[in-house]
Design a protein around this nucleic acid. Structure first.
Lengths: 99, 99
DNA sequence: GGTAGTTACGAATTTCGTAACAATC
DNA sequence: GATTGTTACGAAATTCGTAACTACC
């Protein structure tokens, strides 16, 4: 399980379509299909029901979604913290705000 | 940034040594060194001070640690939830697999 | 035709272990 | 010598885009 896979999954859910997810992720639709397919095989769970009209989350997909979103949130926090080189808490007391 | 990188980092911190981390992660010590090095280059932040006596977290490493641990916790929850196919019986009312 | 998603193939990249290395005790 | 961590190299695995495919309207 990789962060990228969770990001692709969450984006597909939010966009409601693999095509739009691919566009937003700056990649191709076959790639999104394959990445999410690999995640489903790894977890041994179907995350979407596919049809020619689009995708719909399964119950297992809904279970995954909130945890995946939490992981993405933490990864964004890490990137913004490290990007700002904010080393010591004394240098930026209110860690929630811009540091 | 990948979950595996965070797992290697957290394990190295917990074990206090790249050698012991490699052993626990069922890989080699050069691999641990390289994976963590790649994470440091990606975040543009030193996470450890190295010496011939071992490693010591930097202030930036300490900032990363708690968020990395949270991500790992969520990933473990996901794996255990999906491994059992569902958390609540209502989540998957008609699955063939054991629920 | 147009839109949805999947599978096939191949080049480019990445991964990971072995071996060699540097430095300290 | 024993221990720490790093760098080099090469085979194996993975990634990602193009092309070809199925299915529905």
């Amino acid at each position: 399980m990789e962060i990228k896979q969770l990001e692709y999954f969450v984006t597909a859910v939010d966009q409601g379509s693999l095509n739009r997810a691919a566009e937003q992720l700056y990649t191709t639709q076959p790639n999104v299909s394959k990445v999410i397919g690999a995640l489903e095989r790894e977890l041994r769970v179907p995350l979407f029901e596919r049809s020619n009209r689009g995708i719909r989350m399964t119950a297992q997909g809904e279970l995954l979604y909130s945890h995946a979103a939490s992981i993405l949130k933490h990864s964004h926090i890490i990137r913004s913290m490290m990007g700002r080189q904010c080393a010591r808490s004394s240098a930026c007391p209110d860690t929630k705000a811009a540091c």
